[in-house]
Amino acid sequence: MKILIVEDEQALRESIEDYFAEAGNVCETANNYTEALAKINLYRYDCIILDITLPGGNGISLLKNLKENNHPDGVLIISAKNSLDDKLEGLDLGADDYLVKPFHLSELKSRVTAIIRRKSFNGSNLLKFNEISIDLLGKQVKVGRRVVKLTPKEYGLLLYFIANKDKVVSKNAIAEHLWGDRIDIADNFKFIYSHIKNTRKKLMEAGSKDYIQATYGTGYKFSDE
């Protein structure tokens, strides 16, 4: 997939670029308004990660420009402004999603993947990973032909893992993805562990390989290597 990262903060831009850089992905970057405007008018991207506050202009006007020219690129707004108005304005103008800074790279990846999936499959809502197939509309998971009954959280967890395959995802990121901000209650992440254990068990009982690995106590990795 081809991604444009519009972000003026160098350190953040590089992190995102690094995280998305993998076989089959093309990442381009723009660090100001003019550069971003030039790029979106020249090339098409599967997804544009768009910061709102940019030197030289506003990300929202880039979004407007994109929509006025009927470009089909997916847009994910990343903003430090956690304001409902901004969010609604962005989504009204045709952004596909809105993510508030700071965020976990795995969360960003999962959101971008979801946008691209929605854009590119056009009605076909089947996501496949080796022997696991997921009907995104019916929210049904199958291993081969066997239906795996997952709870909503386990289902979310599986999608999250697949979007971040081969990446180490931190427990914090998982917790925030599944429970939102409320996770600050947890003194430990024991209950995440039990969700992961159950997901893994259900998949393996249905005949899938063991893809979920715990890595150094800090996080988990979904990988077929």
């Binding site: 953040l12 992190s15 995280y19 430090a80 700071p102 976990h104 890595t215 150094y216």
Partner: peptide, 25 residues
């Protein structure tokens, strides 16, 4: 927000570099 976002993303990136011992993790 921006510095926190940077620390957060750098931690996520650091996590990808693999091979941590128990103490590091």
């Amino acid at each position: 927000l921006t510095p926190i976002a940077i620390i957060n993303s750098k931690l996520d990136s650091l996590l990808q570099t693999e091979h941590f011992n128990d103490r590091q993790s």
